[in-house]
Computed example of a mutant assay.
Amino acid sequence: MKEIQPAELAEKLKSGEKLNIIDVREDEEVAGGIIPGAKHIRLGEIPERINELEEGKHYYMVCRSGGRSGRATEYLEAKGIQATNMAGGMLAWEDDVEIPDEK
């Protein structure tokens, strides 16, 4: 399984690289802040929402500490989708976050 360090992912964002980031945390966790531009798909919803992910694109998976996003990364890779896990999750993220709008 491929992994990326949070600082490396932050650097890619700052350089203007167009990234596909998926946050697999639960709603209450995401309410505290999400990486700007990330899409929120709870881990349990990945199988039913996999059609929202495009073949040929690369996805960076994020959770609180790296465990759930690691499982999501392995699942997507098994389905032929390119994915990389962000090691350490949001606990290791030291950059900007945005607070999602209430639904």
Rank of each mutant, 00 (worst) to 15 (best):
A7H: 09
A7N: 08
A7E: 10
E8T: 14
L9I: 04
L9G: 04
A10C: 07
A10W: 03
K12E: 07
K12L: 12
K12N: 09
L13N: 05
S15E: 14
S15W: 12
S15P: 06
G16Q: 10
E17S: 09
E17K: 11
K18D: 14
L19Q: 01
I21E: 03
I22T: 01
D23F: 04
V24T: 05
V24F: 01
V24H: 00
R25C: 05
D27P: 10
E28H: 10
A31N: 08
A31K: 14
A31G: 02
G32L: 13
I34H: 04
I34K: 13
I35P: 03
P36L: 09
P36G: 10
G37P: 08
A38G: 06
A38M: 05
K39W: 08
K39F: 04
K39E: 10
H40K: 10
I41S: 00
I41C: 01
R42T: 14
R42E: 15
R42G: 08
L43Y: 09
G44C: 09
E45M: 15
E45R: 15
I46E: 00
I46P: 00
P47H: 05
P47A: 09
E48T: 13
E48S: 13
I50D: 09
I50Y: 09
I50N: 06
N51T: 15
N51L: 14
E52K: 06
L53V: 04
E54S: 15
E54G: 08
E55T: 13
G56T: 02
G56N: 04
G56D: 08
H58R: 12
H58L: 06
Y59F: 10
Y60M: 06
Y60I: 03
Y60G: 04
V62A: 05
S65D: 08
G66F: 02
G67E: 13
G67W: 13
G67D: 12
R68N: 09
G70T: 01
G70K: 04
R71Y: 10
R71H: 13
R71A: 11
A72H: 03
A72Y: 00
E74K: 14
E74C: 09
E74N: 14
L76H: 01
E77F: 06
E77A: 12
E77N: 14
A78N: 11
K79F: 09
I81R: 01
I81T: 02
Q82E: 15
A83G: 05
T84N: 06
N85Q: 10
M86K: 01
A87I: 07
A87D: 12
A87N: 11
L91F: 15
L91S: 13
L91M: 15
A92P: 06
A92L: 08
A92W: 03
W93G: 06
W93Q: 03
W93P: 02
W93F: 03
E94C: 06
E94W: 10
E94A: 13
D95K: 11
D95Q: 11
